[in-house]
C-alpha cells in the first residue's frame, strides 16, 4: 500500500546535496520531513517554481558555508527551513513577524498544556 513512486516528485536532483540513499530522501527528524512536505505542497500549488526553490536553497547553503558552516549534512534541513521561510515571505505568503509571533504562540501553548494532553494553539 505504500505506493512511493518517485515519478510525481519534482526534480530532486536539481537540489544541492540532498541527503538521500538509493530509494530517495532520508530524514533525521520528523520536522525535516514536514519542512520537505510543505515545500512540495507549495510547489505543487504553484506558489513557486522548482527552479526558484533550488536557487533559494543554494544561495542559503552557500551563505551558511561562507559563514563557516562545516556542512556535514546534519545541518542540511536547517538551511532548507531558512530557505523556505525566505521564499514564503518573499512571495508574501506570510511575513517574518507572523512566523516569529506564531512560534512564540506555540511555545506558550506547550508550556500551558499539562503533559499528556494534546497541545492546541489558541490564537486570539
Amino acid at each position: 500500500m505504500t505506493t512511493s513512486s518517485a515519478s510525481d516528485l519534482p526534480p530532486l536532483d536539481a537540489l544541492p546535496d540532498l541527503p538521500r540513499d538509493a530509494d530517495g530522501p532520508v530524514f533525521r527528524e520528523p520536522w525535516e520531513a514536514t519542512a520537505f512536505a510543505i515545500t512540495l505542497e507549495l510547489h505543487a500549488a504553484g506558489h513557486f517554481s522548482w527552479d526558484e526553490w533550488a536557487t533559494t536553497l543554494s544561495i542559503t547553503i552557500m551563505a551558511a558555508q561562507d559563514a563557516g558552516d562545516p556542512d556535514l549534512g546534519d545541518t542540511y534541513y536547517q538551511h532548507w527551513l531558512a530557505a523556505l521561510e525566505k521564499l514564503v515571505t518573499d512571495k508574501s505568503l506570510t511575513t517574518p513577524d507572523a512566523l516569529s509571533l506564531r512560534a512564540d504562540d506555540w511555545v506558550r501553548a506547550y508550556r500551558s498544556t499539562p503533559h499528556g494532553q494534546p497541545v492546541e494553539l489558541k490564537t486570539g
Partner: peptide
C-alpha cells in the same frame, strides 16, 4: 507542563500552522 520541542521543530510548526 509539556516541554516545547526544538527551535527548528517550532519554526516548522509555526510555518505549517
Amino acid at each position: 507542563m509539556t516541554a516545547p520541542p526544538s527551535d527548528m521543530a517550532l519554526r516548522v510548526q509555526a510555518l505549517e500552522s
